[in-house]
Design a protein around this nucleic acid. Structure first.
Lengths: 145, 145
DNA sequence: CAGGATCCCCCAAGATACTG
DNA sequence: CAGTATCTTGGGGGATCCTG
C-alpha cells in the first residue's frame, strides 16, 4: 500500500487510505465497537467479542493505542486491574463504524443470498459444457461461517 | 472468525461480522469506491486506484461479484471490452464507505500525529531506566507510508 | 488475570510469464 | 488489454508456555 498520486481526490489522499488501513485489520473495528459503551477490562472484552485470543486482543489494543484511538489505564482503586477505553478521537470513529453496522442489519441477508446464488448456479444457466470455468468455489467467500 | 453467540446484539450477529469481513479486505473498499461514479473498465480502475496489480484487481472484483456487490458485463458495442459496475446492493454500501472517507479527511491528521507522538516519547516522559519496555517500534503501524 | 515470548500455519498479495 | 497459472513471501492470527 504505497499511496500513489492520481487524479482522484479520494483514492490518492493518504489520510483516506490511512482510514481504510485502520479498518482493514480483522479485529480493529470489532474491538472498537466492543468499547463503545465505556471502558472495559480485557476479560470482558474477550467474552463480549468471542473468538479472539488473549494475545491477539492485546496486540489489537496496542495497535489502537498507537493510533491514538484507545487509552489504557489502571484504575487507582484496583491497581492490579487494567482498563481500556476510547479516546475522544476513537469515539469519533464510532459513527462510521455504526453506519456499517446499520448496513449489515439492513442488507446482510441480501449478501448471504447472493453468495448462495453464486454457489448454486440455479440450474437455469446453460454453460458451455466443455468450457466450465470450474471456479474453485472457495477463496471467494470472505469468511467461513 | 466463528461467530459466537454472546449477549451483545451487534458483536454476535452474523450479518454484522459479515459486513466487517467485507471491509476487512485490503482492496474491497477501495475498489468499491473507485466504482462509485459509474461502470469502469479494469484498466481505468487500475490507474484510478494505483498500486494494485492486475491479478489482485481481478481477484477482488470476482470476490465482490460473489457477494453480489459488483456486476460484470461486456458492452454490446465493443464485445472485446469488459466493464464492472456496482449492483444496487453494492451502491448501498457507498454510504457507509463515504462516512469513512469523511472521517479520514476530518481526523486523519490526528491519527498521524498520534503515531508520531507514540514514536517519539516527547522526552518529557520519565521512564524507569532499567525497565524500558523496548516496544519493537514496528508491527504497530498499519501501513508503511 | 494481564501480557510477553515462541513456534507454526495459512492466505492475501506481489512478481512474473503465458494465453486469447 | 483481460485473465489465468505458478511460485514466493510477509505477516496476521492461532496455540502454548511462562512471567508478574
Amino acid at each position: 500500500m504505497w499511496y500513489v498520486t492520481t487524479t482522484d481526490a479520494f483514492l490518492a489522499d493518504c489520510r483516506a487510505r490511512l482510514a481504510f488501513d485502520l479498518l482493514t485489520n480483522t479485529w480493529n473495528p470489532v474491538v472498537l465497537w466492543a468499547l463503545r459503551e465505556g471502558p472495559r477490562r480485557p476479560v470482558e472484552l474477550r467474552e463480549r467479542i468471542g473468538g479472539i485470543s488473549s494475545k491477539v486482543l492485546t496486540e489489537t489494543l496496542r495497535r489502537l493505542r498507537y493510533n491514538g484511538l484507545v487509552t489504557r489505564r489502571t484504575p487507582p482503586d484496583t491497581p492490579s486491574a487494567v482498563e481500556y477505553g476510547l479516546t475522544p478521537l476513537g469515539r469519533t470513529l464510532l459513527t462510521p463504524i455504526d453506519a456499517f453496522g446499520a448496513w449489515a442489519f439492513e442488507h446482510g441477508d441480501e449478501v448471504m443470498a447472493a453468495q448462495e446464488a453464486a454457489c448454486r448456479p440455479t440450474a437455469a444457466e446453460h454453460h458451455s459444457p466443455s468450457h466450465s470455468p470450474a471456479t474453485p468455489a472457495s477463496s471467494l467467500r470472505q469468511n467461513q461461517a
